[in-house]
Amino acid sequence: MIANQVNLYTRIMRAARVAGLAFVLMAFGLQNSFASDSEEEFNPGDMIMHHIQDDHIWHFFDGHYGTLYLPIIVYSEGNGLEVFSSANFYDEHHNVVEYKGYKLDHGHISVVGSTVHVWDFSITKNVAMLFINALLMVLVFTAVARGYKKNNGKAPKGIQSFFEPIIVFIRDEVVKPNIGEKHTDKYLPYMLNLFFFIWFGNLLGLLPGAANLTGNIAVTIVLAVITFLITNFSGNKAYWGHIFNTPGVPWWLKYPLPIMPVVEFIGIFTKPFSLLLRLFVAITAGHIVILSLIGLTFIFHSYYVGAASGLVVFFINLIELLVATIQAYVFTMFSSLYIGLAVADHDEHH
Protein backbone atom coordinates (compact mmCIF):
# COMPACT_ATOMS: atom_id res chain seq x y z
CA MET A 1 0.00 0.00 0.00
CA ILE A 2 2.65 2.58 1.14
CA ALA A 3 5.06 1.27 -1.48
CA ASN A 4 2.36 1.89 -4.08
CA GLN A 5 1.83 5.40 -2.85
CA VAL A 6 5.53 6.16 -2.87
CA ASN A 7 5.74 4.71 -6.34
CA LEU A 8 2.82 6.84 -7.47
CA TYR A 9 4.35 9.88 -5.85
CA THR A 10 7.74 9.42 -7.55
CA ARG A 11 5.97 8.90 -10.87
CA ILE A 12 3.98 12.09 -10.37
CA MET A 13 7.12 13.97 -9.45
CA ARG A 14 8.99 12.63 -12.47
CA ALA A 15 6.18 13.64 -14.81
CA ALA A 16 5.99 17.01 -13.13
CA ARG A 17 9.72 17.56 -13.63
CA VAL A 18 9.55 16.66 -17.32
CA ALA A 19 6.54 18.90 -17.82
CA GLY A 20 8.20 21.68 -15.87
CA LEU A 21 11.31 21.56 -18.02
CA ALA A 22 9.30 21.62 -21.23
CA PHE A 23 7.29 24.48 -19.89
CA VAL A 24 10.32 26.59 -18.94
CA LEU A 25 11.89 26.06 -22.39
CA MET A 26 8.71 27.11 -24.14
CA ALA A 27 8.17 30.03 -21.82
CA PHE A 28 11.45 31.59 -22.83
CA GLY A 29 11.38 30.57 -26.47
CA LEU A 30 7.86 31.57 -27.32
CA GLN A 31 7.17 34.42 -25.01
CA ASN A 32 5.37 36.72 -27.37
CA SER A 33 4.20 34.23 -29.92
CA PHE A 34 0.67 35.53 -29.96
CA ALA A 35 -0.73 38.99 -29.84
CA SER A 36 -0.65 40.64 -26.45
CA ASP A 37 -3.04 43.40 -27.18
CA SER A 38 -5.54 42.58 -24.44
CA GLU A 39 -7.30 45.69 -23.28
CA GLU A 40 -6.80 44.95 -19.57
CA GLU A 41 -3.55 44.51 -17.71
CA PHE A 42 -3.51 41.00 -16.19
CA ASN A 43 -2.64 41.04 -12.50
CA PRO A 44 -1.93 37.49 -11.28
CA GLY A 45 -1.84 38.49 -7.62
CA ASP A 46 -5.33 39.99 -7.81
CA MET A 47 -6.62 37.01 -9.74
CA ILE A 48 -5.30 34.55 -7.16
CA MET A 49 -6.49 36.53 -4.15
CA HIS A 50 -9.86 36.94 -5.77
CA HIS A 51 -10.14 33.17 -6.19
CA ILE A 52 -9.06 32.08 -2.75
CA GLN A 53 -10.92 34.76 -0.79
CA ASP A 54 -14.53 35.14 0.08
CA ASP A 55 -16.81 37.32 -2.03
CA HIS A 56 -20.35 38.64 -2.07
CA ILE A 57 -20.88 37.41 -5.61
CA TRP A 58 -20.10 34.05 -7.13
CA HIS A 59 -18.25 34.64 -10.35
CA PHE A 60 -18.10 31.63 -12.67
CA PHE A 61 -17.19 33.21 -16.01
CA ASP A 62 -17.27 36.59 -17.72
CA GLY A 63 -20.45 37.71 -19.37
CA HIS A 64 -24.02 38.43 -18.46
CA TYR A 65 -24.93 35.06 -16.96
CA GLY A 66 -21.54 34.19 -15.53
CA THR A 67 -22.11 35.70 -12.11
CA LEU A 68 -24.38 34.57 -9.32
CA TYR A 69 -25.42 37.51 -7.14
CA LEU A 70 -25.68 36.28 -3.57
CA PRO A 71 -27.90 37.80 -0.87
CA ILE A 72 -26.50 40.51 1.38
CA ILE A 73 -27.54 40.41 5.04
CA VAL A 74 -26.22 43.36 7.02
CA TYR A 75 -26.92 44.85 10.40
CA SER A 76 -25.78 48.23 11.58
CA GLU A 77 -26.84 50.57 14.32
CA GLY A 78 -29.33 53.02 12.95
CA ASN A 79 -30.15 51.11 9.78
CA GLY A 80 -31.12 47.83 11.46
CA LEU A 81 -31.22 44.54 9.61
CA GLU A 82 -31.23 44.78 5.84
CA VAL A 83 -31.48 41.97 3.27
CA PHE A 84 -30.99 42.59 -0.45
CA SER A 85 -29.25 41.14 -3.48
CA SER A 86 -25.60 41.89 -4.06
CA ALA A 87 -26.61 42.69 -7.67
CA ASN A 88 -27.65 46.08 -6.31
CA PHE A 89 -23.99 46.93 -5.76
CA TYR A 90 -23.22 46.63 -9.46
CA ASP A 91 -24.49 48.59 -12.44
CA GLU A 92 -24.92 47.14 -15.92
CA HIS A 93 -21.22 47.65 -16.68
CA HIS A 94 -20.20 45.76 -13.57
CA ASN A 95 -19.02 48.90 -11.81
CA VAL A 96 -19.41 49.04 -8.06
CA VAL A 97 -22.16 51.43 -6.98
CA GLU A 98 -23.66 52.44 -3.63
CA TYR A 99 -26.99 51.04 -2.50
CA LYS A 100 -29.24 52.05 0.41
CA GLY A 101 -26.40 54.03 1.91
CA TYR A 102 -24.07 51.01 1.86
CA LYS A 103 -21.03 50.65 -0.28
CA LEU A 104 -19.04 47.57 -1.17
CA ASP A 105 -15.30 48.09 -1.18
CA HIS A 106 -13.04 45.07 -1.80
CA GLY A 107 -15.39 42.74 -0.02
CA HIS A 108 -16.06 45.08 2.88
CA ILE A 109 -19.49 46.60 3.33
CA SER A 110 -19.58 49.93 5.10
CA VAL A 111 -22.03 52.76 5.55
CA VAL A 112 -21.34 55.68 3.22
CA GLY A 113 -19.84 58.63 5.05
CA SER A 114 -19.89 56.96 8.44
CA THR A 115 -17.56 54.82 10.54
CA VAL A 116 -20.36 52.88 12.22
CA HIS A 117 -19.60 49.14 12.34
CA VAL A 118 -21.52 46.99 9.89
CA TRP A 119 -22.21 43.40 10.89
CA ASP A 120 -22.04 41.44 7.65
CA PHE A 121 -23.92 38.14 7.80
CA SER A 122 -24.26 37.90 4.02
CA ILE A 123 -24.57 34.59 2.26
CA THR A 124 -21.16 34.97 0.68
CA LYS A 125 -19.55 32.59 -1.79
CA ASN A 126 -18.07 30.56 1.05
CA VAL A 127 -21.32 30.49 3.00
CA ALA A 128 -23.08 29.21 -0.13
CA MET A 129 -20.32 26.65 -0.53
CA LEU A 130 -20.75 25.72 3.12
CA PHE A 131 -24.45 25.10 2.56
CA ILE A 132 -23.70 23.01 -0.52
CA ASN A 133 -21.16 21.03 1.47
CA ALA A 134 -23.59 20.47 4.32
CA LEU A 135 -26.39 19.52 1.93
CA LEU A 136 -24.14 17.06 0.13
CA MET A 137 -23.17 15.49 3.44
CA VAL A 138 -26.80 15.18 4.48
CA LEU A 139 -27.70 13.55 1.15
CA VAL A 140 -24.74 11.19 1.14
CA PHE A 141 -24.84 10.06 4.74
CA THR A 142 -28.59 9.69 5.08
CA ALA A 143 -28.28 7.49 1.97
CA VAL A 144 -25.51 5.51 3.66
CA ALA A 145 -27.61 5.18 6.83
CA ARG A 146 -30.57 4.05 4.70
CA GLY A 147 -28.32 1.39 3.23
CA TYR A 148 -27.77 -0.02 6.72
CA LYS A 149 -31.49 -0.13 7.32
CA LYS A 150 -32.23 -1.71 3.94
CA ASN A 151 -29.40 -4.23 3.94
CA ASN A 152 -29.84 -5.02 7.61
CA GLY A 153 -27.95 -8.20 8.37
CA LYS A 154 -26.67 -8.37 4.80
CA ALA A 155 -23.49 -7.33 3.04
CA PRO A 156 -23.16 -3.57 2.36
CA LYS A 157 -24.12 -2.33 -1.10
CA GLY A 158 -23.53 0.72 -3.29
CA ILE A 159 -22.72 4.02 -1.58
CA GLN A 160 -22.86 2.26 1.78
CA SER A 161 -20.01 -0.06 0.85
CA PHE A 162 -17.98 2.90 -0.44
CA PHE A 163 -18.16 4.82 2.82
CA GLU A 164 -18.12 1.91 5.24
CA PRO A 165 -14.36 1.26 5.05
CA ILE A 166 -13.70 4.98 5.53
CA ILE A 167 -16.00 5.14 8.56
CA VAL A 168 -14.43 1.98 9.98
CA PHE A 169 -10.97 3.42 9.30
CA ILE A 170 -11.80 6.61 11.21
CA ARG A 171 -13.20 4.53 14.04
CA ASP A 172 -10.50 1.88 14.29
CA GLU A 173 -7.37 3.71 13.16
CA VAL A 174 -8.00 7.31 14.17
CA VAL A 175 -10.42 7.55 17.09
CA LYS A 176 -9.89 4.26 18.95
CA PRO A 177 -6.09 4.43 19.26
CA ASN A 178 -6.13 8.11 20.27
CA ILE A 179 -9.23 8.47 22.43
CA GLY A 180 -9.37 4.93 23.71
CA GLU A 181 -11.93 2.17 23.40
CA LYS A 182 -13.96 3.42 26.37
CA HIS A 183 -14.73 6.88 24.96
CA THR A 184 -14.84 6.00 21.25
CA ASP A 185 -18.63 5.81 21.01
CA LYS A 186 -18.99 9.21 22.65
CA TYR A 187 -16.64 11.14 20.35
CA LEU A 188 -16.90 9.15 17.11
CA PRO A 189 -19.94 11.05 15.72
CA TYR A 190 -18.07 14.35 16.06
CA MET A 191 -14.92 12.90 14.51
CA LEU A 192 -16.85 11.46 11.57
CA ASN A 193 -18.64 14.76 11.07
CA LEU A 194 -15.34 16.62 11.25
CA PHE A 195 -13.50 14.29 8.89
CA PHE A 196 -16.19 14.21 6.21
CA PHE A 197 -16.88 17.94 6.48
CA ILE A 198 -13.22 18.76 5.87
CA TRP A 199 -12.75 16.06 3.25
CA PHE A 200 -15.84 17.02 1.26
CA GLY A 201 -14.96 20.70 1.64
CA ASN A 202 -11.42 20.12 0.40
CA LEU A 203 -12.59 18.08 -2.58
CA LEU A 204 -15.38 20.49 -3.53
CA GLY A 205 -12.85 23.33 -3.31
CA LEU A 206 -10.80 21.69 -6.05
CA LEU A 207 -13.68 21.90 -8.52
CA PRO A 208 -13.37 24.70 -11.07
CA GLY A 209 -15.35 27.74 -9.95
CA ALA A 210 -15.80 26.41 -6.45
CA ALA A 211 -15.11 28.46 -3.35
CA ASN A 212 -12.10 27.88 -1.15
CA LEU A 213 -14.16 26.87 1.89
CA THR A 214 -11.77 24.78 3.98
CA GLY A 215 -8.92 27.13 3.00
CA ASN A 216 -10.72 30.00 4.68
CA ILE A 217 -9.42 30.87 8.11
CA ALA A 218 -12.88 31.58 9.49
CA VAL A 219 -13.93 28.00 8.76
CA THR A 220 -10.79 26.46 10.23
CA ILE A 221 -11.07 28.70 13.30
CA VAL A 222 -14.58 27.47 14.00
CA LEU A 223 -13.56 23.82 13.59
CA ALA A 224 -10.50 24.26 15.81
CA VAL A 225 -12.48 26.15 18.45
CA ILE A 226 -15.09 23.38 18.60
CA THR A 227 -12.32 20.82 19.10
CA PHE A 228 -10.77 23.13 21.71
CA LEU A 229 -14.06 23.41 23.60
CA ILE A 230 -14.72 19.67 23.48
CA THR A 231 -11.16 18.96 24.63
CA ASN A 232 -11.27 21.28 27.63
CA PHE A 233 -14.81 20.46 28.67
CA SER A 234 -13.92 16.76 28.51
CA GLY A 235 -10.72 17.33 30.48
CA ASN A 236 -10.60 15.18 33.60
CA LYS A 237 -8.64 15.62 36.80
CA ALA A 238 -5.51 14.05 35.36
CA TYR A 239 -5.59 16.43 32.38
CA TRP A 240 -5.75 19.58 34.49
CA GLY A 241 -3.32 18.09 36.96
CA HIS A 242 -0.94 17.53 34.11
CA ILE A 243 -1.23 21.18 33.08
CA PHE A 244 -1.00 22.92 36.44
CA ASN A 245 1.17 20.45 38.31
CA THR A 246 3.03 18.55 35.64
CA PRO A 247 4.24 15.26 37.09
CA GLY A 248 7.81 14.10 36.51
CA VAL A 249 9.48 17.52 36.29
CA PRO A 250 11.75 19.06 38.97
CA TRP A 251 9.94 21.23 41.52
CA TRP A 252 11.96 24.34 40.67
CA LEU A 253 10.31 24.38 37.23
CA LYS A 254 6.97 24.87 39.00
CA TYR A 255 7.85 26.98 42.07
CA PRO A 256 8.43 29.87 42.66
CA LEU A 257 8.36 30.60 38.92
CA PRO A 258 5.59 28.48 37.34
CA ILE A 259 7.50 27.85 34.13
CA MET A 260 6.01 24.44 33.33
CA PRO A 261 2.40 25.41 34.16
CA VAL A 262 2.75 28.45 31.90
CA VAL A 263 4.21 26.35 29.08
CA GLU A 264 1.48 23.74 29.50
CA PHE A 265 -1.20 26.42 29.69
CA ILE A 266 0.02 28.00 26.46
CA GLY A 267 -0.06 24.47 25.02
CA ILE A 268 -3.84 24.38 25.51
CA PHE A 269 -4.11 27.16 22.95
CA THR A 270 -1.27 26.26 20.60
CA LYS A 271 -2.90 22.90 19.92
CA PRO A 272 -6.08 24.26 18.27
CA PHE A 273 -4.02 27.07 16.74
CA SER A 274 -1.84 24.52 14.95
CA LEU A 275 -5.03 22.76 13.78
CA LEU A 276 -6.60 25.86 12.28
CA LEU A 277 -3.38 27.10 10.71
CA ARG A 278 -2.37 23.75 9.20
CA LEU A 279 -5.63 23.20 7.35
CA PHE A 280 -5.91 26.81 6.22
CA VAL A 281 -2.34 26.94 4.94
CA ALA A 282 -2.34 23.52 3.26
CA ILE A 283 -5.52 24.13 1.30
CA THR A 284 -4.88 27.78 0.46
CA ALA A 285 -1.31 27.05 -0.61
CA GLY A 286 -2.52 24.30 -2.91
CA HIS A 287 -4.99 26.67 -4.53
CA ILE A 288 -2.32 29.35 -4.89
CA VAL A 289 0.06 26.90 -6.60
CA ILE A 290 -2.58 25.78 -9.08
CA LEU A 291 -3.74 29.34 -9.79
CA SER A 292 -0.16 30.57 -10.20
CA LEU A 293 0.56 27.90 -12.76
CA ILE A 294 -2.62 28.72 -14.64
CA GLY A 295 -1.75 32.41 -14.34
CA LEU A 296 1.54 31.81 -16.16
CA THR A 297 -0.46 31.16 -19.30
CA PHE A 298 -1.86 34.66 -19.17
CA ILE A 299 1.43 36.25 -18.13
CA PHE A 300 3.25 34.76 -21.12
CA HIS A 301 0.28 34.94 -23.49
CA SER A 302 1.30 31.64 -24.97
CA TYR A 303 -0.66 28.58 -26.00
CA TYR A 304 2.42 26.45 -25.41
CA VAL A 305 2.82 27.71 -21.87
CA GLY A 306 -0.89 27.06 -21.44
CA ALA A 307 -0.49 23.47 -22.57
CA ALA A 308 2.53 22.89 -20.37
CA SER A 309 1.06 24.54 -17.30
CA GLY A 310 -2.17 22.65 -17.93
CA LEU A 311 -0.21 19.43 -17.76
CA VAL A 312 1.55 20.50 -14.56
CA VAL A 313 -1.72 21.69 -13.06
CA PHE A 314 -3.20 18.28 -13.84
CA PHE A 315 -0.53 16.56 -11.75
CA ILE A 316 -0.66 19.19 -9.01
CA ASN A 317 -4.38 18.53 -8.89
CA LEU A 318 -3.70 14.85 -8.31
CA ILE A 319 -1.43 15.80 -5.43
CA GLU A 320 -4.13 18.14 -4.16
CA LEU A 321 -6.59 15.23 -4.11
CA LEU A 322 -4.09 13.48 -1.86
CA VAL A 323 -3.61 16.62 0.25
CA ALA A 324 -7.38 17.03 0.59
CA THR A 325 -7.63 13.57 2.12
CA ILE A 326 -4.47 13.83 4.20
CA GLN A 327 -5.49 17.18 5.71
CA ALA A 328 -8.93 15.88 6.64
CA TYR A 329 -7.25 12.84 8.20
CA VAL A 330 -4.66 14.92 10.04
CA PHE A 331 -7.21 17.36 11.45
CA THR A 332 -9.36 14.48 12.69
CA MET A 333 -6.36 12.58 14.00
CA PHE A 334 -5.00 15.52 15.99
CA SER A 335 -8.45 16.40 17.31
CA SER A 336 -8.73 12.80 18.53
CA LEU A 337 -5.27 12.98 20.03
CA TYR A 338 -6.03 16.19 21.97
CA ILE A 339 -9.34 14.89 23.23
CA GLY A 340 -7.68 11.56 24.02
CA LEU A 341 -5.10 13.35 26.20
CA ALA A 342 -7.91 15.13 28.02
CA VAL A 343 -9.92 12.00 28.79
CA ALA A 344 -7.05 9.57 29.46
CA ASP A 345 -7.64 7.82 32.79
CA HIS A 346 -4.11 7.26 33.99
CA ASP A 347 -1.50 9.95 34.23
CA GLU A 348 1.03 9.27 31.52
CA HIS A 349 4.52 10.55 32.15
CA HIS A 350 6.33 11.95 29.17
Binding site: D120, T124, L130, V144, A145, V222
Partner: peptide, 24 residues
Protein backbone atom coordinates in the same frame (compact mmCIF):
# COMPACT_ATOMS: atom_id res chain seq x y z
CA UNK B 1 -15.05 37.19 8.34
CA UNK B 2 -17.58 37.41 11.17
CA UNK B 3 -20.38 36.35 8.84
CA UNK B 4 -18.59 33.20 7.75
CA UNK B 5 -17.71 32.31 11.35
CA UNK B 6 -21.36 32.75 12.27
CA UNK B 7 -22.69 30.63 9.40
CA UNK B 8 -19.95 28.03 9.78
CA UNK B 9 -20.70 27.62 13.48
CA UNK B 10 -24.46 27.34 12.95
CA UNK B 11 -24.19 25.05 9.93
CA UNK B 12 -21.52 22.79 11.36
CA UNK B 13 -23.26 22.36 14.70
CA UNK B 14 -26.66 21.83 13.05
CA UNK B 15 -25.09 19.40 10.59
CA UNK B 16 -23.47 17.55 13.47
CA UNK B 17 -26.67 17.16 15.46
CA UNK B 18 -28.66 16.19 12.38
CA UNK B 19 -26.16 13.67 11.07
CA UNK B 20 -25.39 12.30 14.54
CA UNK B 21 -29.05 11.39 14.89
CA UNK B 22 -29.79 10.44 11.28
CA UNK B 23 -26.50 8.91 10.15
CA UNK B 24 -23.57 8.52 12.51
Amino acid sequence: GVGLIFWQLITFVALFFFLAKMAW
